[in-house]
Design a protein around this nucleic acid. Structure first.
Lengths: 334, 334
DNA sequence: TTGAAAGCGTTACCAG
DNA sequence: CTGGTAACGCTTTCAA
């Protein structure tokens, strides 16, 4: 019951392995092999359940190109959606997929080797964690595409949401509603800190005097970060009329905690998110948020994987403001 | 800039490839190679950035075992979480991972071949879709582990939530609250239909006269199924005091739609889910639901992958009733 | 203490 | 029209 190989087919038919190879590769008609022979070979291959060995074709250099996926941020609800789209696209493009994950732990040489062992056609990094470990991959001139934001070496082609554009629209929306003062709640992560300083920077030149003066970065992450942040804001007795959250998950935690404390959203305080998870539209109140073009980013990433040759790119993909129920007019007395 | 191989190291050092192989495999001290030579080899290997070729070791039969992951249900929010845990565990157990996805489309021979090409140590199927395509994998005596519910061939080791136990507890909870009549909302999928008939079956012998008499299976799926189901129930003007949903996602859609129509949850109608997604605890009202032991299922799946030899198993993992805010006493006039 | 050679499954070139 | 042979990168047995 061992593996069915071209050799075993050849032996059974009393032919040579090379002939079998050519027939099965469709490279036989070109040369002038008897159609009858070809048919016989194909038939027995089917009968015996022949499937070519990935290891062998890989070695030979004729196998399907392999796409490496490095999951850098599996906790993010985001992750599942991105991965799903990557799988779909890779299927269309006939890529084989290998997968590794890093999470928050230190990435050591062994983790990277798992990827390097394969002859990667390209590497897609999903998530916004630190990129220090990528160096050896760059040295091998493997095209690297990253879906996520944050600093990355030049050799990395990065597809990220255009956070600046998004936050500009968001702030204008709040401004129009009469808000002049907002708070910010996020987790103590690079991505979130960056979003916060992005918002601060935009507001620096604001002529209407809109300012961001309550900033809380929680130790927890995701929903819990939201709960912690909201609690800390309330403890200080200083909850501004609008709270900008660094992700939808954080916003959900914030809204829940406010609700438990009897703070009405959006009556007393407006809350915004970032991501537009499927849940955002269905929460009560439905969350006003910025939609990350997840599917678009995943799709271009896979498409680029084929075309790329270690070129620097940094594409900001448009982010869309989704105005829903969690934002409303600024409360009278701020 | 081509690949660094043992041969290239050997050439550089004026040694033979076999010696390099032994040194790098740690099989050199045993035989009596000069420690000095070993050190030299190891050093240059590091310098040149040597990483063994997965294809070659695979061919030789000495490579890391490969675990195949078939994602059968990528839409499920569930999917990301399961995958994250699988990645974590595989890392510990030194598995290489290959990934394919099916979704709802028909699975053809080519899809299965992608998996069969690799010399899979085992295959983990994530999701509850149809298993018709698995036959050729079984014939190759590859251990198959499935995380998800629904019918599967004998050769598949299945880890699934103990739905019966869970729903029994859930129904008792509702019964205690005074409910005697419930509705059911799900998507038109096997998993959901099964959950519905499970609930109906349990209720058949109920001495308190608890019955399930409004069943809606929506064409949409996930959140949208919930919205559609709730709408249909309201259109019929017959919303029972409790609505059991076949998943958390469905429940969220249901609650939102009820909220929009002014139906108070849990005052007018109690709503329950299944999954216990991170969001469940933070929705308003927080969702009473059944917790799937996602991490446990993923972990045992990976652990079994090593030990299994095509044995039939069907393990029901305990499900935990999470009582929160979305269920309350039955309304006066039902 | 080290090297040569065969073989894992495929493919491609060169003979026949 | 078809077969032999070498090579991809690595391990292992046997010989030196």
């Amino acid at each position: 019951m061992s593996r069915v190989t071209q050799k075993s087919i050849a032996t059974k038919l009393g032919l040579s392995p090379s002939l079998v190879s050519r027939a099965l590769a469709g490279r036989a008609g070109d040369i002038g092999v008897l159609p009858e022979t070809i048919a016989r070979i194909e038939q027995t291959a089917r009968d015996m359940g022949y499937v070519p060995s990935a290891a062998a074709t890989q070695l030979k250099g004729t196998g399907d190109p392999v796409l490496g996926i490095a999951a850098a941020d599996m906790e993010d609800p985001f992750f599942g959606n991105v991965l799903a789209e990557i799988i779909r696209c890779s299927h269309e493009h006939h890529y084989a997929l290998t997968l590794t994950g890093f999470e928050r732990r230190n990435v050591d040489q062994r983790d990277v080797d798992v990827l390097l062992k394969q002859d990667l056609a390209a590497l897609i990094v999903v998530g916004s964690g630190p990129m220090g470990w990528i160096e050896p991959v760059i040295r091998r001139h493997i095209p690297i595409i990253r879906i996520g934001s944050g600093p990355a070496p030049d050799a990395v082609a990065q597809y990220e949401p255009d956070e600046e554009q998004g936050f500009r629209e968001l702030l204008e929306h709040l401004s129009t509603l009469g808000h002049r003062r907002a708070g910010f709640i996020g987790a103590d992560l690079d991505v979130h800190r960056n979003r916060q300083s992005m918002v601060s920077r935009i507001l620096e030149n604001d002529r209407n005097g809109f300012r961001l003066d309550r900033i809380v970065l929680a130790h927890a992450s995701g929903i819990e970060a939201g709960r912690e942040g909201a609690r800390r804001m309330m403890d200080d007795g200083d909850v501004p009329g609008a709270v900008i959250c660094s992700s939808d998950a954080v916003a959900f935690g914030v809204m829940k905690t406010f609700a438990e404390a009897g703070l009405d959203v959006p009556g007393r305080v407006s809350v915004t998110g970032f991501d537009d998870l499927p849940m955002a539209g269905v929460y009560s109140p439905a969350l006003t948020t910025l939609r990350q073009p997840i599917n678009d980013m995943a799709r271009v990433a896979v498409e680029m994987a084929g075309k790329l040759r270690t070129f620097r790119t940094r594409v900001r993909m448009p982010v869309k403001l989704m105005v829903r129920e969690s934002t409303g007019p600024a409360p009278k007395e701020a």
